[in-house]
Amino acid sequence: MNGLIVNKFMLLILTAFFCLSLIVIYLPILVMVVFSFNSGKYQTLPFREPTFEWYVSLIADNSFINSFFTSLMMASLASIFATILGFLAAYAFSKAKVPAHALLFGIVVCPLVIPMILIGIGMRLQIVSIGIEPALWLVLLGQTLYVLPLAVINLKNRIDKIPKSMEEAAISLGSTRIKSIILILAPICAPSIFATLLLTFTFSFDEFVIAYFLTNFEVTLPIRIWTSLVTGFEPKINAVGTAVFIFSLTLGLIAQFILLFKQTDLDKNKA
């Protein structure tokens, strides 16, 4: 089939373009990784002696380590909340008759099509007007809201493909609705649920602006990195960047991998 629409010349150009794009996409990241092992305070080439200095000073820097654990906690909780709420909502949208379906679905997924900065600023103005102090629990709720649409869309896609009859069979054999969801629906969706957890975790882990607006003194990792970038250069930021890159990339790739491969496998088995 491919030969029908792409001739040899086109194929050559497209391949070249693809490779060039990969170079452009990965070049700066590669440079950052290289610099993270480069000794010397200034970020200039040529490469000097290789060193682990920046990684050592990173581990010794409590402000980075603490903010990392804060982010880890926020992202874990936000992803768990969003996945649970998202699963329940996706189930309702997929299997129940929801009145004003389009409107309610729109409200739930709307945060996805709103610039994040508006969600952050809206919440900040709201808590100021009702007199709540900025705090981490607000960040948690804000980030849950921000990743909820991802969870709903991902899980609804999966639940839509599961025939209602499976659940109905369980119920007519005496199971309750809740039991059939936990024992039948959830296990079928397990790969998608796992992928959704990872996906929402990554997004929440990297989220900056909501956290920035909703806290005063507690610092998440993106805020710590941001402060370092705008207030003056610290050489260990390359090491931080490399570490964060590898951390998020691993999680994101596993999630993406599951969503792209695993689901098609399941669908193939069904068909």
Binding site: I25, Q43, D206, L229, N238, F245, G252, L253
Partner: peptide, 16 residues
């Protein structure tokens, strides 16, 4: 792949 990592970090890496 780089899509899944921090937006800020990617912007910073272009500075380099």
């Amino acid at each position: 792949a780089p899509f899944w990592t921090s937006f800020t970090i990617r912007a910073f890496s272009w500075q380099l």
